[in-house]
Write a protein that binds this DNA or RNA. Structure first.
Lengths: 334, 334
DNA sequence: CTGAAAGCGCTAACAG
DNA sequence: CTGTTAGCGCTTTCAG
C-alpha cells in the first residue's frame, strides 16, 4: 500500500528517473528495461503518488468547476447537463474534476483567484456567473486559464462558450408569429446573466423585424425561476387585450407560465401558445409537452473543457469565443 | 502569484514553522507574533500551496465520489440529489469533492483501489454500486475509509447509508391495499442492486401480511429504466384478470408503466393505480402526478459524508450502518 | 512559545 | 539510453 518509486527503482536496479520515465511513457527507454521495470511495477502493485507528482511537475491533472452554491445545486437541470458534458470530456483527456461550489459575497472579490492560488487546479470552468461578477476580473488579471460557460462577457475579453441566445430567441418569436399569433409577450430571465439579456434582445429584435410593436407592458421579469414567473406573469393577463403567445427565456419559467395560464381558465396552446428555452428534462413530462428552443447543454460542457485544455497546452490563445447553435423543438405548447 | 511560505517567514523575521502554525491555527503562538504574520500574509496576498501541504501532511482534504460512468450521468435524478447532499456536507466541513466516474469492467477489479492509491483522496463515497462488485472487496481489504450509498452489502460488513427500502415498499403496497385494490402487481428494479432486491422483498412480505397471493406472473423486472419498464409491463396486462394496481421500484419505471397503461386505453388511477419509489423531480410534472415513496436522497448524500469524516477522524469504527426512513407522498396516481 | 533539520515522493534539467 | 543533482512548498518531529 505504501510502495514508492524508489523501492521499484531499487528492485529493478535502475535509477528513480528510469522508473519515472517508464511510467510517463515519454523519454527514451530500452525496450528491455521498460519491460523489466513494468513487471516489477505490476508485481508490487505500485501506483504513483499523484500528490507528489503534482508538486514536482506543477501539473495536477485536475480541473475545477466553479458553480454558484445553492441547496440541491444539481437539481438545476442546466448545471447537471453542463457538468455531465464536462465530466465526459475531462475523462476522455485523463483529467479529473474538482467541484468548487462558491458563495458569492460582496466582501470578497477574490474567491476564484484564491481557488486558483491553491495550485490544486490546472484550470477552471466557471458556470452561471453574473455579468458583473468582480471575481472574474481578479482572476483574469493573473492569466490563470479559465473558461466561462453561460456567459458572454461584455466588459472584457474572456474565453467563453455559450449558445446562440439572440438567434434562438428570434427563432422562438418567429415560430409563434408563424402560428398566426401577433400579441406576443415575453417573460425574461435574470438581467444579471448575459443569456437573460441576450434572449430578451432577441425577442425585441424579432418583434421589430416582424413589424410588431414592442410593448413594455408585455415584458415581465421572471429571474429564471418557476415561482417568480408564475407570480409575475399574472400581470400579462390582467390588462385589456391579452397576449395570445408568450416567449419565456427558460423552461422553468415556461412551466410556471403555463400553470398560470391554466389557473386562469385559459388553454395552452389554444388561447395562449408558450415557447420555452433550454429543453430541460421536465419539458417532456409537463402537460402539454413544452415547445422550446433547445440549447446543447451537454455539448456546452464538453466544449468548455476542450477549450480549456487547448488553453493550458498553449494550443490556443485567449480570448477563445464560441457560440453553439440552438434548435427549435416542436411539441404541444406552441 | 508565486509567493511561498518561506518568503512570508523571511519578511516577518520568523521561521517557516511559525508561519505554518499561524496558518493552521493550531499550536501555541504569541498573540503579537500571530498578528504580525497575519498582516504580512494578507498584505502579500499569500495563499498556501495545497499540493505541497498535502504531500507533507498526508492529508488532502479531498473526498472522492465514485459513480458508475454513463453519458449524462447527472441527469439521473438520484445521483444528482445524492451528490447535492454530498457537496453540502463536504462544504460545511471544508472538504472538497473530486468526481470519479468509473467504468466497471470485468478485467480490472482494482479500480477503486487504484484511485485510493493515488493518495489524492482522504476517503471515498461509492454511489450506485452493484451487490457483487469485486472492486469493493479489493478496496475494503486495505482499510481505506469509504462509505457505500445505495448499497446494503450482504456479503461482508461495510459502512453504508441507505433508505428503509423494505419498509418503504411495504408502505406502498399497504397504501394500494387501503385503496381497495387487491390485484397488486410489481415492477421490480435491478436485482444487481441491493435496493432493487429489498423493494421486491418488501412487496412480497406486504402481500403475504395482507393475505394476498404472490403470483410470479404479476412480477416483472424493469432494471430501473423507463423504456424497459414500458416494454416489460405489457405482460402484466395481457393475461386474464388484469392487475388493478402496480407498485414500481422507482419513479422512472413508474412513469413508463403509467404510459403503458394509458397507451392500452386504461386510466390511472381509475383502472390501475400506480405507486413509484424515490420521489424524483419528474414525479411532480408527470400526468397524473405520481404517488410515490419518498426517499431522502439529499440526506443520504449528507449522511454519507458525515459518516466518512467520522471514520477518517477515528470517531467511529467500521462498520457503520445507517438506514434512513422513507415516506409516502400521496399525489394523483394512487 | 519558537526554530532547525529532515523529509513527503516525485520530476526537471542537465550530464554522460 | 540512463543517471545525478536539486529541488517542488509545506509539515513533522524534536529541541530549545
Amino acid at each position: 500500500m505504501k510502495i514508492t518509486l524508489a523501492e521499484i527503482a531499487k528492485k529493478a536496479n535502475v535509477s528513480k528517473m528510469t522508473v519515472s520515465r517508464v511510467l510517463g511513457g515519454k523519454g527514451p527507454i530500452a525496450v528491455e528495461t521498460r519491460r523489466r521495470v513494468m513487471r516489477i511495477i505490476d508485481d508490487m502493485g505500485y501506483h504513483p503518488n499523484l500528490i507528489a507528482r503534482s508538486l514536482a511537475s506543477r501539473r495536477s491533472m485536475i480541473l475545477g468547476v466553479i458553480i454558484p452554491w445553492k441547496e440541491q445545486l444539481l437539481l438545476d437541470n442546466y448545471v447537471a447537463q453542463v457538468l455531465s458534458g464536462v465530466m465526459d470530456s475531462a475523462r476522455n483527456h485523463h483529467y479529473r474534476i474538482l467541484l468548487c461550489p462558491v458563495e458569492i459575497t460582496r466582501d470578497d472579490e477574490k474567491q476564484y483567484l484564491n481557488i486558483a492560488r491553491t495550485r490544486l487546479l490546472d484550470g477552471m470552468i466557471l458556470v452561471q456567473t453574473k455579468t458583473d461578477d468582480p471575481n472574474i476580473d481578479a482572476l483574469a488579471d493573473t492569466g490563470f486559464p479559465f473558461v466561462l460557460v453561460n456567459q458572454r462577457r461584455y466588459s472584457r475579453p474572456c474565453n467563453f462558450v455559450d449558445s446562440q441566445n439572440i438567434k434562438g430567441a428570434r427563432t422562438a418569436v418567429r415560430h409563434l408569429h408563424g402560428l398566426g399569433r401577433r400579441e406576443i409577450a415575453c417573460v425574461a430571465g435574470s438581467m444579471d446573466e448575459s443569456n437573460g439579456r441576450d434572449r430578451l434582445l432577441g425577442y425585441r429584435r424579432a418583434m421589430k423585424e416582424l413589424g410588431l410593436p414592442v410593448r413594455e407592458d408585455r415584458i415581465v421579469y421572471g429571474d429564471f425561476d418557476q415561482e417568480t414567473a408564475y407570480r409575475e406573469s399574472l400581470r400579462l393577463f390582467e390588462g385589456g387585450r391579452r397576449p395570445t403567445a408568450v416567449f419565456c427565456s427558460d423552461d422553468y419559467m415556461a412551466i410556471g407560465v403555463v400553470k398560470r395560464i391554466q389557473d386562469l381558465g385559459l388553454r395552452v396552446p389554444g388561447d395562449v401558445a408558450v415557447v420555452g428555452f433550454d429543453d430541460i428534462e421536465a419539458a417532456l413530462y409537463v402537460q402539454p409537452a413544452l415547445t422550446t428552443i433547445r440549447q446543447p447543454m451537454v455539448e456546452l460542457g464538453r466544449t468548455s473543457i476542450d477549450i480549456l485544455l487547448d488553453l493550458i497546452d498553449g494550443k490556443q490563445k485567449s480570448p477563445v469565443r464560441r457560440l453553439l447553435p440552438t434548435e427549435l423543438v416542436r411539441r404541444d405548447s406552441a
